Deep mutational scan, measured.
Amino acid sequence: FSITQFVRNLGLEHLMDIFEREQITLRVLVEMGHKELKEIGINAYGHREKLIKGVERLI
């Protein structure tokens, strides 16, 4: 299971460039909250919320 699959499953594949540029893996994403996601350029609250909720389902 990769970050690419995870992001695609959430319908947020347009954010993949950010994850690749910042070298974010699923392991790193698990540790990130709204503040960190915003810092790397994910400005939409809804997108950040989707990512965080998606990660919570993985754990």
Score class of each variant (00 low, 15 high):
1 F>H: 11
1 F>C: 14
1 F>V: 13
1 F>L: 15
1 F>G: 09
1 F>R: 05
2 S>G: 12
2 S>Y: 08
2 S>V: 08
3 I>K: 00
3 I>Y: 03
3 I>D: 01
3 I>F: 10
4 T>L: 15
4 T>C: 11
5 Q>S: 12
5 Q>A: 12
5 Q>R: 08
5 Q>G: 09
6 F>C: 04
6 F>V: 05
6 F>H: 01
6 F>A: 03
6 F>W: 07
6 F>S: 02
7 V>W: 03
7 V>T: 08
7 V>F: 06
7 V>M: 13
7 V>P: 00
7 V>A: 06
7 V>I: 13
8 R>F: 09
8 R>G: 09
8 R>S: 14
9 N>V: 12
9 N>E: 15
9 N>Y: 12
9 N>L: 13
9 N>G: 13
9 N>K: 12
9 N>I: 11
10 L>M: 08
10 L>Q: 05
10 L>G: 02
10 L>R: 01
11 G>K: 08
11 G>W: 02
11 G>Y: 04
11 G>Q: 08
12 L>Q: 00
12 L>V: 04
12 L>I: 05
13 E>K: 08
13 E>R: 07
13 E>I: 10
13 E>Y: 11
13 E>T: 09
14 H>L: 11
14 H>Y: 13
15 L>F: 05
15 L>G: 02
16 M>A: 11
17 D>P: 15
17 D>G: 12
17 D>T: 10
17 D>A: 13
18 I>P: 00
18 I>C: 03
18 I>R: 05
19 F>I: 07
20 E>V: 13
20 E>N: 14
20 E>K: 10
20 E>W: 10
20 E>A: 10
21 R>Q: 09
21 R>P: 05
21 R>H: 07
21 R>S: 07
21 R>V: 06
21 R>G: 05
23 Q>V: 06
23 Q>G: 14
23 Q>P: 05
23 Q>A: 13
23 Q>H: 12
23 Q>W: 05
24 I>R: 02
24 I>S: 01
24 I>P: 02
25 T>V: 05
25 T>R: 04
25 T>W: 04
25 T>N: 09
25 T>Q: 06
26 L>M: 13
26 L>R: 02
27 R>W: 11
27 R>L: 14
27 R>A: 13
27 R>F: 08
28 V>F: 08
28 V>A: 12
28 V>D: 15
29 L>M: 07
30 V>N: 06
30 V>G: 10
30 V>C: 11
30 V>Q: 12
30 V>M: 15
31 E>R: 15
31 E>P: 08
31 E>H: 15
31 E>I: 09
31 E>T: 15
31 E>N: 15
32 M>E: 01
32 M>A: 05
33 G>E: 02
33 G>L: 04
33 G>R: 07
33 G>C: 05
33 G>N: 08
33 G>P: 02
34 H>M: 03
34 H>A: 03
34 H>R: 04
34 H>Y: 04
34 H>E: 05
35 K>V: 08
35 K>W: 06
35 K>L: 07
35 K>I: 06
35 K>G: 06
35 K>E: 11
36 E>F: 03
36 E>C: 04
37 L>E: 01
37 L>T: 01
37 L>G: 00
37 L>D: 02
37 L>S: 00
37 L>Q: 05
38 K>G: 07
38 K>W: 07
38 K>I: 11
38 K>C: 09
39 E>K: 12
39 E>V: 07
39 E>P: 00
39 E>Q: 13
39 E>Y: 07
39 E>L: 10
39 E>C: 08
40 I>F: 06
40 I>Y: 04
41 G>M: 04
41 G>Q: 04
41 G>T: 03
41 G>H: 04
41 G>C: 04
41 G>W: 03
42 I>N: 04
42 I>E: 01
43 N>K: 14
43 N>I: 15
43 N>W: 11
44 A>Y: 14
44 A>H: 15
45 Y>L: 09
45 Y>D: 05
45 Y>S: 06
45 Y>G: 05
46 G>R: 14
46 G>Q: 15
46 G>M: 12
46 G>I: 15
47 H>N: 13
48 R>K: 01
48 R>S: 05
48 R>P: 02
49 E>D: 12
49 E>Q: 13
49 E>C: 10
50 K>N: 06
50 K>H: 07
50 K>D: 07
50 K>W: 07
51 L>K: 00
51 L>E: 00
51 L>S: 00
52 I>V: 06
52 I>T: 02
52 I>N: 00
52 I>W: 03
52 I>L: 14
53 K>D: 07
53 K>N: 09
53 K>E: 09
53 K>T: 09
54 G>C: 08
55 V>H: 03
55 V>R: 05
56 E>G: 08
56 E>N: 10
56 E>Q: 15
56 E>P: 04
57 R>Q: 13
57 R>F: 11
57 R>C: 11
57 R>T: 11
58 L>T: 05
58 L>Q: 05
58 L>N: 03
58 L>V: 07
58 L>I: 10
58 L>R: 01
58 L>K: 03
59 I>Y: 12
59 I>W: 08
59 I>D: 05
59 I>P: 13
59 I>K: 11
